[in-house]
Computed example of a mutant assay.
Amino acid sequence: MSKDIELTLDGVSSAVAVGSTGFELFQDKKVVAQRINGQLRDLAHLVSQGDVVEAVSIDSADGLSILRHSTAHVLAQAVQKINPDARLGIGPPITDGFYYDFDVDEPFTPELLKVLEKEMERIIRAGQRFVRRIVSDSEAAKELASEPNKLELITLKSSENLAEGSAEVGAGELTIYDNVDPQSGEVVWKDLCRGPHLPNTRMIGNGFSLTRLAAAYWRGNEANKQLQRIYGTAWPSKDELKAHLERLEEAAKRDHRRLGAELDLFSFPEEIGSGLAVFHPKGGVIRRVMEDYSRARHDEAGYEFVYSPHITKSNLFE
Rank of each mutant, 00 (worst) to 15 (best):
L245P: 03
G284L: 08
S159F: 01
A252H: 14
E139T: 04
G89Y: 07
L162P: 01
Q226P: 08
V135L: 02
A243D: 11
R247C: 14
E250W: 10
A301M: 15
A140H: 07
V169W: 06
G273K: 11
W235N: 07
A126D: 09
Q80S: 06
W235I: 06
S138F: 01
K114R: 07
L241S: 07
P92S: 09
I272G: 10
D299K: 11
Q80Y: 00
F279S: 05
H310R: 11
D28N: 13
I5N: 08
Y303R: 06
E186G: 03
R122K: 08
V104I: 15
F317L: 14
R257M: 14
N161H: 14
V135D: 00
W189T: 02
E262V: 14
N315Y: 15
E121C: 04
Q226N: 05
C193H: 09
V52P: 04
G302W: 11
G11H: 06
F317G: 07
E186P: 07
L113D: 07
A33S: 04
H45M: 13
E271D: 08
F23D: 10
N37A: 02
A301H: 08
E271C: 04
I272C: 05
Q49H: 13
E152P: 03
A61N: 13
S146W: 00
P84M: 01
E117Q: 02
R68C: 12
V79R: 02
E139R: 00
G172C: 10
S60W: 11
K157R: 12
D28F: 11
A78T: 01
I230D: 05
G22M: 07
V115M: 06
I124C: 00
V289H: 08
S13Q: 13
K3E: 12
F266R: 04
L40E: 01
R287Y: 11
V115Q: 09
L192T: 02
I36N: 03
L116V: 01
E173N: 10
N206H: 00
R258M: 08
Q228E: 09
K150H: 03
S57G: 02
S138N: 05
T95P: 03
W235T: 07
N161A: 11
S158Q: 14
W235M: 04
A55T: 06
G19S: 05
G195Q: 03
V74T: 06
V187S: 04
L265W: 14
K313M: 13
S237M: 10
H73F: 02
G284F: 12
A277P: 15
A167Q: 05
D10E: 08
H310I: 12
Y100T: 03
V47G: 04
Q226L: 09
A61H: 13
D105I: 12
I82D: 00
I272H: 04
E300T: 12
K157C: 00
L25R: 07
A214R: 01
A126Q: 08
V18T: 08
D178V: 00
S159L: 00
T155N: 12
E186M: 14
K142R: 12
V53G: 01
D299R: 11
N221Y: 09
V32A: 09
K238R: 15
P110H: 09
D101R: 06
L316V: 15
K225G: 02
P107V: 12
